[in-house]
Amino acid sequence: MKRWGLLLVWAVLVPWVSSAQPVRPKVVVVKSSSLASYSSVVAGFSAEVHAEVSEVVLDDSAQAATRALQRIAAQKPALVLAIGPLAANSARRTLGKEVPVLFAMVPYYEKYGLEGPNLTGIALTSDFRPELAALKALSSSIKRVGILNDPRFSSGMVDAARAVAEPLGLSIVSLEMDGQAKLEKVLANAKDKVDAMLMVADKTVGNASVVQGLIAFSTANRLPLVGLTPSQVKEGATLALAPSPITIGQQAGRLANRIIHERVDPGALAVAQPEGLDLAVNLSAASKLGGSKDVVLELLRFAAKRDFPVRVFE
Rank of each mutant, 00 (worst) to 15 (best):
L69V: 05
P151C: 13
G121V: 09
A64K: 05
Y112T: 02
S139N: 04
I142S: 03
I147Q: 01
P100W: 03
V53C: 10
L148E: 00
I83C: 08
L81K: 03
I147F: 05
P85L: 09
S54T: 15
V99Q: 01
R144D: 02
R93L: 03
Y109P: 06
D127V: 12
A62Q: 13
E131M: 14
K97H: 07
A74L: 12
E52M: 10
A73Y: 12
E55S: 05
R144V: 10
L86E: 11
R129F: 11
D60P: 06
F103K: 07
T66S: 15
S61E: 07
A137Q: 14
R129A: 15
D60E: 15
G116W: 02
P117Y: 03
Y109T: 01
D150S: 11
A65Y: 10
L138N: 00
P100K: 05
L79K: 02
A51W: 01
A134V: 10
P77Q: 04
E110K: 09
L148K: 11
V106E: 02
S140N: 15
N149R: 01
T125L: 11
R67L: 08
P117L: 02
A133P: 07
E98H: 08
T125V: 15
F103H: 03
L124N: 06
P100H: 07
S139R: 02
P85Y: 13
L102Y: 09
P85R: 11
D59I: 03
R71M: 04
E98Q: 09
A137H: 12
R67Q: 06
L81R: 00
A82Q: 11
L79H: 05
Y112F: 12
A137D: 03
T120Y: 08
R67C: 01
P100D: 08
I122W: 08
Y109Q: 05
A62I: 09
A137E: 08
A123S: 15
A104K: 08
L124Q: 12
L95D: 02
V57L: 06
P130L: 14
L69R: 02
Q63K: 12
R93M: 00
P151D: 00
L102M: 10
K111I: 00
D60A: 15
L124Y: 03
P107W: 06
L95M: 08
S61A: 11
S126H: 15
L58P: 01
S61H: 04
P117M: 05
A88M: 10
V80K: 05
R144Q: 07
L58V: 04
K76W: 11
I83K: 01
A123K: 15
G113D: 01
L86M: 14
K76Q: 14
D127F: 15
K76R: 14
L135I: 12
P107A: 05
K111M: 01
S61R: 09
A73E: 09
V101D: 00
S140E: 13
T94F: 00
R67F: 08
A87M: 00
L95V: 04
D150V: 10
Q75E: 14
V80N: 04
A78G: 13
N89K: 15
L95P: 12
T120H: 00
L69S: 02
A68D: 02
V57M: 08
E110V: 05
E110S: 13
I72T: 04
I142E: 00
A51Q: 03
D60L: 13
R152D: 08
V101E: 06
G146Y: 07
R92N: 03
G84E: 01
L95K: 03
